[in-house]
């Protein structure tokens, strides 16, 4: 569990992909996402998935992405099983399941290579409302915090004799109540404290606050944009023409 939780914590990595402008990373993620959505055959899904893994490899996040994709693999297995059960052919069921992995992988690549600060800058660039940006970025920042909290709560409850792995699926679900309640209460308390701390530091005092960092496109960003469009747009066009 902790192994998975660690995967959700953003870490700066010395890779050329991490240094790209976040807008370029978003463009590449959208291209990969679109590619994954349009796949219809095993070959196409292999192309989309390899695109995700090539970028994950270049970004040196393959190991971390494998952690975040652990639950995705379980869901993909369920999707595969359900499709088979309702009568889809084996190959089609596989394509649908692997497509799901490619879709999640494309968004994982973006979130694992883009720190919350850069995410905020991208959203500002899109001129989204400030409160919405703050809420979204805070939610992203809190995912690993909540996961680590959940692990600590599980430790505390297991130390009081709670056995999470015992019984059938319903009793196991019931056993998670002592985990979920402190987690939710703690999150509510934390959000209240955060709101007070933000207001104490003049959040919302001016309509248009200044920003320390400004996004600027460098030569490597232009190169990455041109390269991604050159490779992805024909692939998307090909996939669309097959449909």
């Amino acid at each position: 569990m902790q192994w998975i939780a660690q995967g959700f914590i953003f870490r700066h990595t010395a890779s050329p992909y991490h240094q790209l402008d976040p807008r370029v990373k978003l463009l590449i993620a959208v291209e990969l996402f679109t590619l994954a959505l349009l796949v219809g055959s095993l070959l196409e899904v292999a192309v989309a998935l390899s695109g995700v893994f090539v970028i994950a490899g270049v970004s040196k996040i393959l190991r971390r992405m494998s952690r975040t994709l652990t639950y995705t693999l379980i869901f993909a297995g369920m999707i595969f099983g359900i499709n088979l059960l309702v009568g889809y052919p084996l190959i089609d069921s596989m394509v649908i399941a692997v497509r799901f992995i490619a879709i999640v992988g494309s968004t994982s690549v973006f979130f694992l290579t883009t720190p919350p600060d850069e995410l905020e800058l991208v959203m500002k660039w899109f001129r989204l409302p400030r409160d919405l940006i703050f809420a979204f970025v805070t939610a992203v920042r809190f995912v690993p915090v909540l996961m680590m909290d959940a692990l600590q709560i599980m430790d505390a409850q297991k130390s009081r004799g709670l056995e999470l792995q015992k019984g059938n699926i319903f009793s196991r679900f019931r056993r998670f109540i002592p985990i979920l309640i402190p987690l939710i209460v703690d999150a509510v308390i934390r959000s209240g404290e955060l709101a007070e701390a933000m207001e104490s530091r003049a959040y919302g005092a001016v309509k248009n606050p200044t920003s320390i960092y400004v996004l600027c496109v460098k030569r490597r960003d232009t190169f990455a944009t041109v390269l991604s469009i050159t490779l992805m747009v024909p692939a998307i066009y090909l996939f669309l023409s097959v449909i």
């Binding site: 709560i153 505390a156 297991k158 309640i181 209460v185």
Partner: peptide, 22 residues
């Protein structure tokens, strides 16, 4: 041994009360 079995003899009181009260 399971955590539950060991915990019967070893009582661990964690730092943050909010992490266990439910």
């Amino acid at each position: 041994e399971s955590v539950a079995h060991l915990s019967k003899r070893i009582g661990v009181i964690f730092q943050n009360p909010d992490h266990q009260l439910f």
